[in-house]
Structure formats: structure tokens, C-alpha cells
Amino acid sequence: MTSATLPAVGAGQSSSKPSAIRPGRILLYVVLIIGALLMITPFLWMVLTAFKSDLEIMKFSWLPSELRWRNFTEAMQTAPFLRYFRNSLFIAVGETAFTLAVCTTAGYALAKMPLRGGKMLLNYFILLLLVPFQIILVPLFMIVKSIPLFGGNNILGHGGIGWLNSWWGLIIPLGAAPLFTFLARQFYVSLPDELAQAARVDGLGEFGIFWRIMTPLIKPALITICVFQIEAAWNGFLWPLMITTSDTMRPLQLGLAIFSQNPAEIQWPYLMAGTALATLPMIVLFVFAQKRFVEGMANVGIKG
């Protein structure tokens, strides 16, 4: 129950429609602007550093003495970066498609289907989150090597290299992280059951309800999953390094590692130039994705 008559603090603001200038608004803007600056500064510094010379880069400073655009072109000419970009794109798209397919279905089943031991299953997926990737690296590597019938392996997984050095190995093991199943589940669970029941009355099957009724309603969550998964795949370093030996499949971050390959001789201007270029697509992606959050809002007009 919310009682309306109480003269609560700030009640004057609450009922009136937003007017042009209010102290609260100004404070909000000030806080957001300071926050945004704190967030952007490292990125700005990275971009500025990309223009610096070797000598300038050694000292901590902001501005380069001149805009050395050649740092960008030279960095990109150091290695086949076009191929690295393409590989990263391929991995990111593949992994995201796989994650969406596996995690939304599982998340929905956990949230809305009357499965025996549903609570246990949810706990299972939460427990999976506890596993640190770094330590299962070695066993995971061995599993990927023993995938039956791939890469020269027999049906028992012996004799060949399995998914090592393959797109399968790059995409499948790290896709569909339990994190995203859990995230999808938490959004599906917020949807009211009445919607599904109304659809059932209209004669829609269970899969139809999942696909045509419920999933469109969690569009903000789907976009969130896409953004996170694409970013994780795009920035992946250790796993691609471990399971690829040939350069033809290696992604962007491994290409950028060329510049810091020798820790004593890091080529900072190139590293920063390459990193800035690599980050750009992710920022553009986000700029578009965040607009969709608002779109999602229009769709969810559900009665509680």
C-alpha cells in the first residue's frame, strides 16, 4: 500500500510534471558529467597516446606534440591485421549466435517450465559460475583435443587433434556461458505467467509461446547478452592463444600482442593505435545497442 496523503520529503517534486530547470536535474547533470569524464579519460588518453613518438611516450603526459597518423598506418602494416579483424568478427558472430540459441532456450526452461528439480537446475547453473576459466584451461584443452571424429580423431577421441586449430574450438567451448543462461532466466522470470496463459487459450504451442510471446518481451536482455558476448569474444586472448598454432585463425588481440610480445620492448604508440582501432567497433556497436534499450521499453507494457 502506498498512502498518498503523507507530506513526504520531496513530495513537491514528485507529482509535478518535469519543468524546464530544477535543482535536482542540474545536480543529476553535474554528477553524470563528472562520472562520464572519469569513465572516458583513460580511453581518451589511449587515443592521444597513439599519436605520440617513442620518446614522448616514456613520460606521463597528455598531448602529443603532433598528430602522427602514420602510427596507425604503420601499426596496421606490421602484420595482416585485416585478417585478424575478419577472424575476430567471425568468432564474435559465431559465438553470439550460439550463445543466444543455447542460453535463451535454457533460461526460459529454467524460468517458466514446470521441471522437476527446477530449483536444483538453477543452482547447477549458478554453481557453474564459480569455475575460474584459468584453472580449467588444461583439462579443457585436453577435452577439445579429444572431440571424437574431428581433426583426425577416431570415435573414442584418439589419434588426432580434435578441435584444436579449428573454428569449432575457437567458438563452441567458450560460447553459451552459464552466465548468460542465468541472465536470460532472471529476465524471463520477471514476465507474468498470465501472458503465456492467454496465448495458450489462443491455441499457441509451448515453443510458440517461448519464441513468439515471451522472447520478444525480453529484448533489452537479449541485446545485453549480445553486447556482453560480442565484447568477450572480441577481447578474447588466452583461449585463442592456447588452441591455435597457425596464424590463419588467430584473432585481433593476438595480433595486438605483437607490439608487446617482448615485455622489455613494448611498442607503445603502435600498441595504443592498434588497441584504439580495435576498440572502435565495440563502441559503435554499443552506441547502436543502447538505443534499443529504449525501444524495448515501449514493448513491455504489462500489467503486474
Partner: peptide
């Protein structure tokens, strides 16, 4: 929104 997300994508 983008500004607050940038640290997540910055290397």
C-alpha cells in the same frame, strides 16, 4: 550511457 560503458571495452 556510452561513456559509462567505455571502461568495459577499453583494453
Amino acid at each position: 550511457r556510452t561513456a559509462f560503458y567505455i571502461p568495459t571495452v577499453t583494453a
